[in-house]
Design a protein around this nucleic acid. Structure first.
Lengths: 229, 229
DNA sequence: ATATAAACCAAAATGAAATTGGTATCCGAC
DNA sequence: GTCGGATACCAATTTCATTTTGGTTTATAT
């Protein structure tokens, strides 16, 4: 290796050799090609050199790689974070509350316009059931269902899907000591009146009030989370 | 067991016994309760009888069960379809526009508060690049990137994830003839001024204006879609 | 200096084994 | 005969250890 030009030429040679190999090889449906360790012996080059060549092709966008998965021809599938677990891993309770405050009032605004009497009846049922709850767990179940019923009432599949995603992340995020203690919710719990104000606004088709009440409610929830030592 | 009334009474006794047990027991976060085999020995009843009691509570909606998973307090989680393809299949352009009008103005409002100068610089770049676009395709690329930069500027991973999901559905939904024709965007295209108003508002930290401008922009987009024959 | 081989790491896939709600069967008690 | 209890079995699901895979480091030789 006296000459750096010869060196470069050799590396490029591996790239072209790899290109030729990939052009002739029969690939499975998912475009996955053999693991690096196989490929290197098949091409008669060291794994280090093969990886350099793969780096080039990856930079060109001809293939993509992922640890544990393998190396694939074509472009990487959209890594849209629709993955609940991945989202929950990167997020935290503060973000969840902020996201709820951003989304739910507007969903509630839409729902005030589109909710059917049947929707509203279900909301009322959630209200009474949550008041009758004997444990925090039961209360939370009816609270969650109320919020989802409102999202359903928006009559928008996509909004409902986004709401569900948010909710799934909320459940998956680690709340730690923020969790409620195992005591029965008191009758003067702030959420009762706030929930009723929301449903009232929806029933009266007071669109602005519906959004405002939902926002106020969620802000109270957020504040209570911070208050708890 | 000479008396059928006594029989019935005994069964109800198991139900109330189970209710009392569930009220006192400490449940894990997911509301899962011990497997039937444990529960039956813990309560000193046969599995058959326990299952009858569980059937009652399940009919009441107090709990739900699933083979292999277990028995859980509360109501069955609705199968959230966070799957992009499934969402796109059930949705349509109208829903996509409505969802954008619900979400993006509020995300924009948050971004006006949290955007860094670097974020704003990137938004400005998107503005100039979209003006220079030679094709609709290029224009859309920069338009999409502008909207996503705004979502990034909200500094909320979860909101960004929801925005990405919405965007993925938007791309996946069938637009048909609503698609733009392959002509270069005209310099007086409505979006240019609207985009600049949005970025201006964000830069001046005019939170209300940022939300309002984004809402106005998306409403214009929606109207233009309807105008086109 | 550079390339190679080897070892190691964490993410992901894989597969066997255990768990769990649901169901059928058999047996005994009344 | 009917009903409850015990047992065994089934299929869906989870759990856990193992393997595979791309990425990284280290040591060695030329």
């Amino acid at each position: 290796m006296l000459n750096p030009a010869a060196d470069t030429h050799l590396e490029k040679g591996i790239v072209t050799q790899l290109r030729a190999y990939l052009a002739q090889i029969e690939l499975p449906d998912d475009g996955r090609l053999p693991p690096e360790r196989e490929l290197s012996t098949a091409l008669g080059v060291s794994r280090t050199e093969l990886r350099k060549a793969l780096d080039v092709l990856e930079a060109e966008g001809q293939l993509w790689r992922h640890v544990g998965k393998g190396t694939f021809m074509g472009s990487r599938p959209l890594d849209t974070f629709a993955d609940i677990a991945a989202l929950a891993r990167r997020s935290n309770p503060a973000e969840v509350m902020r996201a709820r405050i951003v989304m739910e009032p507007e969903i509630c605004r839409a729902a005030a316009f589109t909710a059917t009497p049947e929707d509203i009846a279900e909301m009322r049922m959630c209200l009474t059931r949550s008041r009758q709850a004997e444990t925090w767990r039961q209360y939370e179940a009816w609270d969650t269902r109320l919020h989802r019923t409102i999202a359903e009432a928006s009559q928008n599949t996509l909004l409902l899907g986004l709401f569900d995603t948010l909710n799934a992340v909320r459940r998956a995020v680690t709340w730690g000591r923020l969790r409620t203690e195992p005591v029965k919710p008191l009758p003067n719990h702030h959420s009762f009146a706030e929930h009723e104000a929301i449903v009232d606004a929806i029933e009266q088709r007071d669109i602005a009030a519906a959004a405002a009440c939902m926002r106020a409610h969620l802000q109270t929830v957020e504040r209570k989370l911070l208050d708890r030592q």
